[in-house]
């Protein structure tokens, strides 16, 4: 029987997770991109002190979790967190809070504004019911990919395409030396020669060039789809390159719509497994309608990482 003191609306998107103890819950808070103002942090600390165990847990996806919250206090907890605009996160078969690295504002490696992307996705898609299983999104600022884009349902990785202004080049050779991917070598004329097929869009050449002879011709996201971790890991594969930052939300929405439709009747199945069943061509085709210039001609299905139990043989 429902406790009349509890506003069940608060529970709708999830984020309240049953603990072992009687009447006790973990309350997962919504921290898109893992960044939050210290005023909010102070409020969270205050609430944790007052209603919780006096400590919090940092989830592996950048959320702060309040521990040992009695369900009778839910309304109070939600209301007090709300004083600093702190909201509760989601769980279950929904679009989860997006994760992101620091991005480009203060981090010298960042090529794109991952924090802005995470906030936008959180504002527009957070909590959307998938009808099937959870749906995770992350944003990495560059190909170092600290947030591990390939183990998300849709994972974004910042990328640039370099172009050379040969007149500005003073032939120092630093770019060729810095390119770890073998995409640059110094030519006979003392200028770098670009082998596009080896380039991973990391931007190291642009960053290292002392005269700005290397410049950014294109900037955006490399997008991988179909990844997950857990008992049966899958590595997401590449579907789009140089997707403009402002198209990320619409792109995810298209993938989500395809997933909702194709997983119909399949039960609790993640996107990557649906791609295995349906094939990559169908998803590529759907994405090509709205994002023709960024979609690859073909791709491979999510890659199975067969390192889990049971023992083989």
């Amino acid at each position: 029987m429902a406790n009349p003191k509890i506003d069940l609306k608060n529970l709708k998107a999830g984020g309240f997770i049953k603990e072992r103890g009687k009447d006790l819950f973990t309350v997962r808070l919504r921290v898109p991109g893992g960044r939050l103002a210290v005023d909010r942090l102070a409020k969270i600390a205050e609430v944790a002190q007052k209603y919780g165990k006096g400590y919090v847990h940092l989830s592996v996806r950048q959320s702060i979790e309040l521990i040992n919250i009695n369900f009778a206090d839910f309304d109070q907890v939600v209301a007090e967190l709300g004083e600093e605009q702190q909201k509760v996160a989601s769980c279950g078969a929904r679009v989860r809070v997006p994760t992101a690295c620091g991005g480009c504002e203060y981090n010298p490696n960042g090529l794109v504004d991952t924090q802005a992307s995470a906030l936008e996705v959180d504002a527009k898609l957070f909590g959307t019911a998938t009808g099937h299983h959870k749906f995770k999104v992350c944003f990495a600022g560059c190909p170092f990919d600290c947030p591990k884009s390939a183990i998300n349902d849709v994972g974004f990785q910042g990328a640039i395409w370099p172009t050379l202004d040969a007149d500005a080049c003073i032939s120092c050779g630093l770019c060729a030396k810095s390119c770890t991917e073998g995409a640059l070598a110094m030519g006979e004329d003392g200028k770098p020669v670009f082998s596009a097929e080896n380039c991973i869009y990391c931007g190291d050449c642009v960053k290292v060039c002392p005269t700005s002879a290397w410049q950014v011709a294109k900037r955006g996201y490399s997008v991988r789809i179909g990844g997950k971790w857990g008992r049966r890991p899958l590595i997401g594969t590449l579907y789009a390159t140089f997707l403009p930052e402002e198209k990320a939300v619409d792109f995810i929405a298209t993938v989500l719509a395809w997933y909702q439709e194709k997983a119909e009747g399949a039960g609790r199945v993640r996107l990557g497994d649906i791609i295995h069943k349906e094939g990559t061509a169908s998803l590529l085709e759907r994405l090509r309608v709205d994002f023709p210039e960024y979609i690859l001609a073909s791709t491979i299905p999510p890659q199975i990482v067969d390192t889990q139990l049971p023992l083989k043989g």
Binding site: I170, C172, K207, V208, C209, P210, T211, S212
Partner: peptide, 17 residues
């Protein structure tokens, strides 16, 4: 890798490296 571009960002002109 660091010093030349930092000096350039400070407004100096790099003539050679």
């Amino acid at each position: 890798k660091n010093v030349p571009r930092s000096l350039k960002a400070d407004g100096h002109k790099l003539l050679g490296l």
